[in-house]
């Protein structure tokens, strides 16, 4: 362990306490998560130590489960629509609050951000009542509406900081050079905000993909993946399959987060984009 200690020394922490603390913290965060892939390859129906043997049958079982695949498809669909819609709404909202001054602006921003702070269970109940009052049949459509509500504040937060970060005179310079507001959006605003749009979509997608409560309240016949997984936990023989699925989701999420972070880096340090 020379590396952390040396780094710790450089940071003025000669005893290395901070380094040890950080390590303990990371273990605390990630060891439980690592149980997922470990037990997903364990040749036993019981999720206990000691491990029995290596198998991939739980993966085969999971991906042969038609109900599970339908739930996965549903989640992917809902996630895709919710993340794109939330990002468009977030972009419009962010553009409005960063580029124009209007009466009641703070109130409007506050209202858009509100779903972040309302307990999700309240939001779920409220939406359920609303949907019932309007006689809208429950189903993936209602779940998607709920997810859009939930994702828009995230999208708006990401995009507002992105738009705030770039000089407003860039857009003016474009219009000054003869481009209409529409062409200015495509030639200047969009390319500069694109990394923000991508991270907003990834973030919204992840929020939607593992959202449980709203989906639970607003579901019709077809559950989303988290709701389906929850319903399967009653059957002990399904548990290893759920773990296998969880392991796959974990890996995919990690890849998405790495991509999101990479895109964000490109965005903040323009130098890294290759010279055209």
């Amino acid at each position: 362990m020379t590396k952390p200690t040396r780094a710790a020394k450089r940071m003025g922490d000669p005893g290395g306490f901070l380094a040890i603390f950080a390590l303990a913290y990371l273990l605390f965060l990630y060891v439980p998560v690592l149980f997922l892939p470990v037990f997903s390859f364990n040749d036993s129906i019981f999720v206990t130590f000691p491990l029995k043997g290596f198998t991939t049958k739980w993966y085969e079982q999971a991906f042969a489960d038609q109900d599970m695949l339908r739930a996965l498809t549903a989640s992917l669909q809902v996630g895709a629509i919710a993340s794109v819609t939330a990002t468009i709404l977030g972009l419009l909202g962010a553009k409005a609050v960063t580029r124009y001054r209007m009466p009641g602006q703070n109130v409007v921003t506050g209202l858009i951000m509100m779903p972040l702070f309302i307990p999700e269970i309240m939001l779920g109940i409220a939406l359920l009542i609303l949907v019932n009052t309007l006689f809208i049949p429950l189903g993936l459509f209602t779940i998607t509406i709920g997810h859009i509500m939930l994702c828009t504040p995230f999208a708006m937060a990401v995009l507002t900081s992105r738009l705030d970060g770039f000089d407003k005179s860039l857009e003016e310079a474009s219009m000054d050079l003869g481009e209409s507001p529409w062409m200015t959006f495509w030639r200047v605003t969009f390319p500069l905000v694109a990394p923000g749009i991508i991270s907003s979509m990834l973030l919204s997608f992840i929020v939607s993909f593992d959202e449980f409560l709203l989906s639970f309240f607003l579901q019709g016949q077809q559950p989303t993946l988290p709701v389906y997984i929850w319903s399967q936990l009653r059957f002990p023989n399904k548990l290893p399959g759920v773990l296998a699925l969880g392991a796959v989701i974990l890996i995919v999420s990690c890849i998405l987060v790495v991509i999101a972070e990479w895109v964000r880096q490109i965005g903040t340090d323009e130098r890294k984009v290759g010279v055209a």
């Binding site: 005179s169 310079a173 219009m175 003869g178 500069l192």
Partner: peptide
């Protein structure tokens, strides 16, 4: 008349050089 229809051009205080384009563009 909006700026994009005027025969005037401006050098901004911040210069407003487009960061995603090279000097030629």
């Amino acid at each position: 008349i909006p700026s994009y229809k005027r025969p005037t051009n401006m050098v901004f205080q911040s210069y407003a050089i487009f960061p995603h384009l090279n000097v030629f563009d």
